[in-house]
Design a protein around this nucleic acid. Structure first.
Lengths: 224, 224
DNA sequence: CCGAGGCGTCAAGGAACCGTTAAGAAGCGG
DNA sequence: CCGCTTCTTAACGGTTCCTTGACGCCTCGG
């Protein structure tokens, strides 16, 4: 069941919205200030967060940052019209969406569904297994039959991006931009070096790669 | 560089917002009515669309549908408060977000960043299937009954354009321009070579094409 | 009947790209 | 300050891909 963390300092809203969400089959947990939200979230990691901006103890952006430090669950901001600036800051800090108060319940539910639909394909699989190796995205470890493999930060970064898009082609530009930054989008030889290192460490036959495949002129692909 | 298509019938807004966006490093192209928007988008596929609802010639929902017919770029609606109903219709037709006029530039920029951040990793799972082969536009893979087909960058580029306009004729000029650039609009023999290669790889009977059809003197058409 | 233009096919040379290796530079911990 | 790991950079051989020209087929119009 999808767990929703609902953060607001108005008990009535907490109650009304909680009833509505539970009626739709969500598992709802609540918090009424920022510190509480972080504590509750740490104990019961939510799949989605509804965050009111007018909290008594913390700025919304701090709460977002505190969650984003470890969680990738989507965050929807609930904001009053006069909290414009905070809303923008919260979105920049990593929130995914917002709804302006007062809002209709139907609109909020639609946004929840849309946001969850967008987020779902990536986050479920914290561990990716192939016949040759196992990647634990949360623990940042890779194991083969021979034991645990040591990866450098850059090697891991590349592997993580590929593994998070299983079966899909990841363009050279995307890899270079995400790992080295936008200024390096043409340094394709970096990729050649690191892909070769990953293959040497992970592929049963590095010269005949089975999992880290090349799409000449386009990019690379992880094939589970 | 991220290309933004800005559609509005007010020249002042077009100008002011265009300056602001360009200052932030976006590549901005503009259109001042719905028909113009579709034409411009076809010629320079945008990464994101900002669409005003109060256009003189078409309903917003039509423009959204026209774009969604082939593009998965996120669409943000710019709507006045009295266009509530149209806004809902546009969102249902496939728009991704909306901002209500009058809006602050900072808010809009934040929405743009958030929307692009969301859109990039997911990429949408557009899959086109025929009886002979399956094209996964996101994963950039093509499968036939015989297994996965390896395509070169240019082959893929052409196939992608045709598949994104199913049933529609794509002119030779358009194909040549999009794949090789404006200077090659007359090198039609390039097309003959690559269409032949695609047929050999995808058509059950390459000599009697069923899916990649020739429109003599005009261009080619993908028939699902 | 014949020529012209458009299309499909093939092959070859050259350009671009990829995998690999290695060595110097830079950062980090002891 | 030294040694270790990691990153950057350059060079090479091999492979793939793009470009280009030639040729035959078909259709259509003269």
């Amino acid at each position: 069941m999808t767990r929703v963390l609902l953060v607001d300092d108005e008990p009535q809203l907490l109650r009304a919205l909680g009833i509505n969400l539970r009626a739709r089959g969500y598992d709802v947990i609540t918090a009424n200030d920022g510190a509480d939200a972080l504590t509750v979230a740490a104990r019961h990691p939510p799949d989605l967060v509804l965050l009111d901006l007018g909290l008594p103890d913390m700025e919304g952006v701090e709460v977002v940052a505190g969650l984003r430090a470890w969680s990738t669950a989507p965050i929807i901001i609930l904001s009053a019209r006069h909290e414009q600036a905070q809303k923008v800051a919260a979105l920049d800090a990593g929130a995914d969406d917002y709804v302006t108060k007062p809002f209709g319940v139907d609109e909020l539910l639609a946004r929840i569904r849309a946001t969850l639909r967008r987020a779902s394909p990536v986050e479920d699989t914290a561990v990716v297994t192939t016949e040759a190796f196992t990647v634990d995205l949360a623990a940042r470890t890779v194991r083969t039959e021979a034991g645990e493999v040591r990866l450098t930060p850059t090697e891991w970064h590349i592997l993580e991006i590929l593994v998070r898009h299983p079966g899909k082609l990841v363009s050279q530009q995307q890899l270079l931009r995400e790992v080295w930054g936008p200024a390096y989008s043409t340094e394709t030889n970096y990729l050649r070096v690191y892909i070769a290192q990953l293959r040497r460490k992970l592929e049963p036959l590095p010269s005949r790669p089975r999992y880290l495949l090349t799409a000449t002129g386009l990019g690379y692909r992880f094939e589970p």
